[in-house]
Amino acid sequence: MTATSLEQAFAAHHAGAVRLAYLLCGDHEQAEDAVATVWLKVHRRLERGPVDDIGAYVRRAVVNEVNSWFRKLGVRRREAARRKGDHRGTYGHDERIADADAVLHALDQLPSRTRAAVVLRYYADLSVADTAAALGVSEGTVKSSVSRGLTTLRGIMEEDER
């Protein structure tokens, strides 16, 4: 390979390669980076011998490079999401106290039997049968009390947010 053949290929195909990369990724700087990487690969390939159709080779290399960039971006985003976790880690101490206060305020507004069913079922994490036994009522009564209680709690919490 001669430096002249690489220079000629660059002069003939660089602008088209950048346009192609831009159309594929939608970001001018990323397109320039992808094409720069492609020209490095083209240089290495031309050192091994001539390429039949350098234009087709460059286009295919640009498509592969942009696709590779998108795959790596997807992996980085999934990794970032996995490391980040959910929103519980971002709550400050004051926010958790405020949320707990809001829930306690809403629970105070429920009738005592409904409040007991909700607390035993979800705070104490009892099964429906265990909650029924603790309250001395049927399982159906527990289910309906909890359902009504949660609906009322949602309404109270939504009202308090306004």
Rank of each mutant, 00 (worst) to 15 (best):
L20W: 00
A129K: 12
I156K: 07
T2S: 15
A80E: 12
A124Y: 04
H13Q: 13
A129P: 04
V18G: 00
G85V: 09
K143E: 00
R154D: 07
R113A: 07
G16I: 04
V63Y: 08
G92E: 15
P50Y: 08
A61W: 01
H93T: 12
L20K: 08
A34I: 06
D160P: 03
T131Y: 03
V63D: 00
D53K: 08
S5N: 03
V146K: 10
R60N: 13
I156A: 01
A102Y: 10
K72M: 08
K72C: 05
D94I: 03
Q30P: 01
L20M: 09
V118N: 13
K84D: 13
S144G: 02
L120K: 11
G136Q: 02
K41F: 02
T4F: 11
S127V: 00
Y57L: 12
D130Q: 06
G74R: 15
A80T: 08
G49H: 02
T90I: 01
T114E: 14
R19F: 01
A56M: 12
W69V: 00
P111W: 01
L104E: 12
L135I: 11
V146T: 13
S112C: 00
T131W: 00
R115K: 11
G55P: 12
L40D: 13
A80Q: 09
P50I: 05
F10R: 08
L6H: 05
E7L: 07
R82K: 07
C25H: 06
E95H: 03
A124N: 06
A61V: 02
G55Y: 12
G26R: 14
L6T: 07
E139R: 13
R19K: 13
L6Q: 06
A12Q: 14
H28N: 09
I54V: 15
N67F: 08
T37L: 09
H105N: 06
L73E: 12
G26Y: 15
V137P: 04
E32W: 04
A21L: 14
D52C: 08
D101M: 10
A102R: 15
A117K: 13
I54P: 09
V51F: 01
H13F: 10
G55I: 11
S127N: 01
G74I: 03
E159I: 00
R96I: 11
V119M: 13
V119P: 13
E65L: 04
S145W: 14
G55M: 11
R115D: 05
Y122I: 08
S5Y: 01
C25P: 06
T4C: 08
A124G: 07
I156H: 11
V128F: 01
K72Y: 10
R76W: 05
D125C: 05
V35E: 06
L46F: 02
V51E: 06
P50W: 07
V38L: 03
Q109G: 10
L110W: 04
V118W: 12
A100W: 15
S112P: 03
A116K: 10
R48W: 00
R77W: 02
V75R: 14
V35G: 06
D86E: 11
L40A: 09
D94L: 12
M157D: 02
